[in-house]
């Protein structure tokens, strides 16, 4: 079976500033990969470029999703094909009801895949159950998307979206940042519950804590727009112990 995500020599810039300087990365189906690295190493840029954000210009290389050229697809087409980006800073949508938004997104994806839409009642049932598993208060579905949510609630809302949209490749951009220990556990369990042969994840994180629960199949370390080292879960522990500087010097 082919890899779900194959990134080769990917380069991207904002304006004249190069940020990704040649990323090589392969994620097979069913695997969870972690991407770690110091601030400014390009981790978030990688996640945005894979999700299709327009303000980054791809200047070289390729990204293939299954058999498809990912970089040619609109963001909504990537989502319908099964890519989900959990934002580091989830965006507030004042005046847009959370449940309506989720149902609109789910049905738009289903339409794009030629599936029947889900009606409001059936959807609400699904959403409530998923919310309960993430210990979300019921009224979070009734509120405007992310408006007035605490940092932890926003992150949980991202995981709720993920649980309902059932992606085959989730990219989690520092979903653990700003969470207390309990919230972190809820979020991590939420992701772990999705583990399946047809679910892969790219987990961007600073911390070992999330990875202790998720247990990644591979860990990649980014620095200055490149992956400088890859290894198994042990690598994350090594980083937790010794920091990035030794790795970066070694790679230089």
């Amino acid at each position: 079976m082919s890899h779900i995500l194959t990134v080769s020599g990917l380069k991207a810039a904002i304006g004249d500033t190069p940020i990704l300087r040649g990323i090589d990365l392969v994620v097979p189906p069913g695997e969870i990969h972690a991407v770690m690295g110091p601030n400014g190493s390009g981790k978030s840029t990688l996640s945005y470029v894979l999700a299709g954000r327009a303000d980054y210009e791809v200047t070289g290389g390729s990204a293939t999703y299954g058999e498809a050229d990912l970089l040619e697809m609109e963001p909504e087409a990537r989502a319908a094909a099964g890519i989900f980006l959990a934002f580091q800073a989830p965006v507030e949508l004042p005046g847009v009801n959370n449940a309506n938004f989720l149902r609109t997104a789910l049905n738009a994806q289903r339409r794009a895949r030629g599936q029947d839409e889900i009606d409001a009642v059936a959807f609400l049932k699904l959403a409530r159950e998923a919310g309960k598993r993430l210990s979300m208060p019921d009224d979070m579905l009734k509120r405007a998307v992310n408006v007035g949510f605490s940092g932890g609630e926003k992150k949980r809302n991202e995981v709720l979206q993920m649980a309902l949209l059932k992606p085959s490749l989730a990219i989690l951009d520092e979903t653990d940042s700003g969470l207390d220990v309990d919230a972190l556990r809820i979020v991590a369990e939420g992701v772990r519950a999705l583990r399946a042969p047809d679910f892969s994840a790219l987990v961007i994180t600073h911390h070992q804590r999330l990875l202790e629960i998720l247990v990644p199949d591979r860990v990649h370390v980014m620095s200055k727009g490149r992956i400088i080292r890859s290894g198994d879960a042990q690598l994350a522990r090594e980083i937790e112990r010794e920091g990035y500087s030794a790795l970066i010097q070694e790679a230089a």
């Binding site: 909504e76 847009v96 609109t104 738009a108």
Partner: peptide, 19 residues
């Protein structure tokens, strides 16, 4: 906001309408 909505699968025109 538009990108956030599109990244969830909502087509651009529908995202605009919602906003």
């Amino acid at each position: 906001q538009l990108f956030y909505m599109r990244s969830r699968g909502v087509p651009a025109a529908e995202a605009e309408a919602l906003l």
